[in-house]
Design a protein around this nucleic acid. Structure first.
Lengths: 210, 210
DNA sequence: ATGCCGGCTAACCGATCGGTCAGTAGTTAC
DNA sequence: GTAACTACTGACCGATCGGTTAGCCGGCAT
């Protein structure tokens, strides 16, 4: 059995230096952003020297973009693996919400990385190399909802539903710690309970009246 | 008439150095984050020398926290000025959404600054000096909705409604540029139209059936 | 055995970082 | 007049930044 405190170091030694650099860079960039992390820190965390990082990546920007692209690709691959057999609106939306939520918490660093990219100035986002990747991923989610768009209430578009689903999940993820401390009239419950509530709200809001 | 290109410099010369530093620091920190901005840049933008910034603020962190606190206070003051006379649920929610949305676009830099603070690691957020301020502001919004909570559908709490309203507005603000380029089936319309759609969705979702 | 090539490192580079300090100009108080 | 104080600046500090360079080492083809 590997001691807990050394688990990360142990895992690191089992991977190639390149992989270790990418993994540690993702964690660090996610926590402190591009400018908040030095190449030296990444190298130290990955157990290599600084020059080795520059052996694998031309510049710091290069490393950053690789990590960023990886995170977007992971979203796409997870979306590939998602099979939406449900043909009814409620079931499909529920599955989508659960899948997305699970994905966020399975890859918290990649998620935060992309959230960071969204948070800069609008022009900075447009210059970002992952701008088209993010758009494409969003388009794919919209596509999944378009297949059942005939079940939607009039005036509610699939793109709107996709946006609301992704927004609420992402914002919930982003403000996780904020929720835990809220005390207003004992109103905000645990995370699953909160999610159940807004999913209920959403379904009531989008389904055509019966 | 002041030439457009010099307007900012002109306005700057009309204010005290301290004010100019705070204003320019907010813009720069919002665009590039704490680590992405040097004190020298702030000083240059404010038209003073670097040492002068340190004359008014003990450290860079000090300046950053002042700017951050200012942004939170602005939210609180704007909330003070908001009079919610509406006693019906729909009208009140609509007013709240419109107020919040207007506030975000009136103070884009302060908004992005706080979004940045939310985007770091959860533990970083908890250590942030504005953590309690953000919570307090959220609590106040919840309070505004609690007054009409008897009109809510069962299982829907005022805190949930507050969270959905703030989430969708903030996320809409955050991904503004993303929307403009979306082309899926001509689905995502202009920003006001999109907001009308989700407000409609929200009201259908939360109101007790008649 | 030899030459070569990719992974890797220690040492180094100029630039810039946050922050300090000594001193100047202007204003007020006595 | 001068002491005291505030706003402000240019020059400077050690540390760290992103990036480079020369060279070491083990494997592999010839």
């Amino acid at each position: 059995m590997v001691p807990t405190l050394l688990a990360s170091a142990y895992e690191n030694s089992e991977r190639s230096a390149l992989t270790r650099i990418l993994v540690e860079a993702e964690v660090l960039f996610a926590e402190r952003g591009f400018d908040g992390v030095s190449i030296n820190e990444v190298a130290l965390a990955a157990g290599v020297c600084k020059a080795n990082v520059f052996h694998h990546f031309a510049t710091k920007q290069d490393l950053y973009e690789r990590v960023l692209t990886q995170a977007c690709d992971a979203f796409g691959r997870s979306l590939d693996a998602l099979e939406l057999k449900e043909r009814d609106l409620a079931g499909r939306v529920r599955r989508l919400v659960e899948w997305h939520n699970a994905f966020l918490y399975q890859r918290p660093h990649g998620t935060r990385l992309i959230l960071r990219e969204l948070t800069g100035s609008p022009t900075a986002l447009e210059r970002s190399p992952v701008f088209p990747l993010i758009q494409r991923n969003f388009d794919r989610v919209v596509g999944l909802l378009s297949e059942v768009s005939d079940k939607l209430r009039e005036g509610i578009s699939p793109a709107l539903v996709a946006k609301v689903v992704l927004s609420l999940n992402l914002f919930g993820f982003q403000t996780e710690r904020l929720n835990e401390k809220l005390t207003v009239a004992g109103s905000l419950a645990t995370r699953p309970e909160l999610q159940r509530q807004w999913l209920d709200l959403l379904l009531h809001g989008i389904e055509a009246r019966d």
